[in-house]
Design a protein around this nucleic acid. Sequence first.
DNA 1: CTAACTGCAAATTCTTTGCATTAGT
DNA 2: ACTAATGCAAAGAATTTGCAGTTAG
Lengths: 160, 160
Amino acid sequence: MPMRWCEGKSGNWWHRHFRGGGYRITMPRQVILQVLAESKKHLSAEDIFLRVHQIYPNIGLTTIYRTLELLVKMGLVVKFDFGDGRARYELRSGNGGTSHHHHLICTNCGRVIDYDEFLDEEIELIKKTEKELARKYGFEIKNHTIQFYGLCKKCNTVKK
Amino acid sequence: MPMRWCEGKSGNWWHRHFRGGGYRITMPRQVILQVLAESKKHLSAEDIFLRVHQIYPNIGLTTIYRTLELLVKMGLVVKFDFGDGRARYELRSGNGGTSHHHHLICTNCGRVIDYDEFLDEEIELIKKTEKELARKYGFEIKNHTIQFYGLCKKCNTVKK
DNA sequence: CTAACTGCAAATTCTTTGCATTAGT
DNA sequence: ACTAATGCAAAGAATTTGCAGTTAG
């Protein structure tokens, strides 16, 4: 029904991930991925549910959770915790390439900024650290997060 | 009753934080801080509750939560989320000095390792980034986290 | 066809809140 | 004494689970 979004003749870029894992390509999954792809930034399960609901009203919240869990397991989506009790989800950078997720979070109002300062240095350090951690602890590292917490300009002046 | 832990004649190091903020020094708070100081590493509210309970059985879980909230607000404790739906708490490094909290988390079994590779570089980069973010976005940065997620050696071989 | 997927409702789990009581200062 | 702090029970919120019906391959 919807589905008009960067699809090749043989399906979308993520189809192989599904086929390969023996997972079925269903309408809910397509819509959820579409929503994630369109609005990219740290959505909560409920955010996703609401947007998905507009496109395809039959999809339940449970399916959102189950699909997100699958997508995270497959590595297509990253799950975050900003400390407000609800998880956020973000599609991994388009296709290949390591994705980086750097957030600046206001602990008072919950505002989240995606920053991009010193990314190159950061990425270099992360890579190095990842390699060393993998070697030393035998971990297979899948992902990482870097987050700064504090008070945004507004909350800082209002001084609650 | 308990309280035999690095206290000067005029009270523990954290007393001034309490007095200064107009907060009372109560038994639950003392015990909770003792537990945090003794076992340092990423405890959940329930972990803390259980240990506190052994020392002083009357303290309720609610008080644990309320005290932790206060301690976080005061900056004495750092709150973490490792993605398993329960928050973890850690006492900030002893006294002064910026504390750094670096974790390597197995997404399968939940094991958490505190790593210490490339800390100097990391700290330097963090400092620089913090300064820049404060300048650019007007944030007053209070804290940060760096976490790596992946499969630990065991979970990786068992290949679930 | 048949096993994976879905939706609903109920259940869990973690955390917060209301309120009467207790205890620092 | 005056209030902050506590404990209990109940409420809330996010996420998970059981199960019968649905659908992709």
